[in-house]
């Protein structure tokens, strides 16, 4: 038999084989137990002794060549098999992977906000939820029996005078300033509590994030700059920001900060009460009386502080219209984040 002829035949067969099935048929035809190569090998003992060696080598070479060709063809066919309609896998089938969990949207927003402030050089700190009357109120220039307390309905502990559940994250300002000297650049996320009946926009527990910067020569204009960068980072670079004078006992001057409505872009819609603005946070320069309480010299140091409700930001960002959803923990809600 002419090895060269056989080889030409093999090459022709292979080039016509266009599917893994066809290739498998060829493999059986040539390399199977009753295939051509086996037949050739089986014919060796019948040859003349001097021919056996060279013929054997030729058959071996043919077999190796055939194996190579089959492998190559197999690879090229495998390459084709991802083409739709030409695959043994229906790519319309669901992918196979372990299921991922989710962090709570509140955690996500806290993470996002903290990251923005981290980039600017602020550290993240937390404080206890059970607080002293002093840290929650008097240390923040909110005197006893004063109307300014009315904004802070507070849960008190039974049998435990002067202790309460913090009604805002600001006590951490007092704690931190008592412990450390300026410069300070801190953000504080956490749970806060206020006695309130639960409805679509009120809860007795919610989250705030507080920030403050204390150093020499911190100015009101710095507060504007930092908050503008922050709000643009979290919402969108094209939002507008506006500072409105307001009153907080622990800051002077104080401001409420609005952003242009995310839905109507400031034209006025039902989401913003036709105002075009959404109230987003409270801020101001830390009151000298707060500094005095922690033995900082208000002549030397100045600083600003700001605070905001996390749920409100999450509701605006994700278009959530009922605050109770955050604490119901319906998996159909959680899995969306």
């Amino acid at each position: 038999m002419d090895i060269n002829l056989i080889q030409a035949q093999i090459e022709a067969d292979l080039s016509n084989a266009n599917s893994p099935q066809a290739l498998e048929e060829l493999r059986i035809k040539y390399l199977g137990r009753k295939g051509l190569i086996a037949e050739l090998t089986g014919s060796i003992p019948a040859l003349a002794a001097e021919q056996r060696g060279s013929f054997g080598k030729e058959v071996n070479a043919l077999k190796n060549r055939l194996l190579n060709l089959l492998n190559e063809k197999e690879k090229s066919l495998a390459g084709d098999s991802l083409k739709p309609g030409n695959a043994d896998v229906d790519i319309g089938m669901p992918g196979i992977a372990p299921e991922l969990g989710t962090v709570h949207p509140i955690t996500r927003i806290i993470g996002e906000i903290s990251t923005v402030f981290n980039h600017m050089g602020f550290c993240v700190l937390e404080g206890p939820e059970v607080e002293t009357e002093h840290n929650n109120f008097t240390g923040l220039n909110i005197p006893l029996e004063h109307p300014s307390r009315d904004a802070f309905d507070t849960f008190y502990l039974k049998n435990y005078t002067n202790f309460l559940l913090r009604s805002h994250t600001s006590p951490v300002q007092v704690r931190t300033m008592k412990k450390h000297k300026p410069p300070l650049a801190i953000v504080v996320p956490g749970r806060v509590y206020r006695p309130d009946a639960v409805d679509a926009s009120h809860l007795f527990m919610f989250h705030q994030i507080e920030g403050f910067l204390v150093d020499e020569n911190v100015r009101f204009s710095d507060l504007k700059g930092i908050l503008s960068f922050f709000l643009k980072s979290v919402f969108s670079s094209d939002i507008k920001m506006r500072f409105r004078p307001h009153f907080f006992p622990f800051t002077e001057p104080s401001a409420e900060v609005d952003i242009s409505c995310l839905i109507c872009k400031g034209k006025g819609c039902s989401a913003c009460g036709r105002k075009g603005w959404l109230e987003i946070l409270g801020a101001g320069m830390i009151h000298p009386n707060v500094f005095k309480q922690v033995d900082y010299d208000p002549k030397k140091y100045t600083g600003f502080a700001f605070g905001m409700g996390i749920e409100r930001i999450a509701m605006l960002k994700y278009g959530i219209n009922d605050i109770r959803l955050f604490f119901e923990n319906d998996l159909r809600f959680l899995k969306q984040f």
Binding site: G121, C123, L125, L184, A185, L213, V218, S221, D222
Partner: peptide, 12 residues
């Protein structure tokens, strides 16, 4: 709007 020089405190 101005941006202050922030001096982060690594100990906090």
């Amino acid at each position: 709007q101005t941006l202050p020089a922030i001096k982060p405190n690594v100990n906090i």
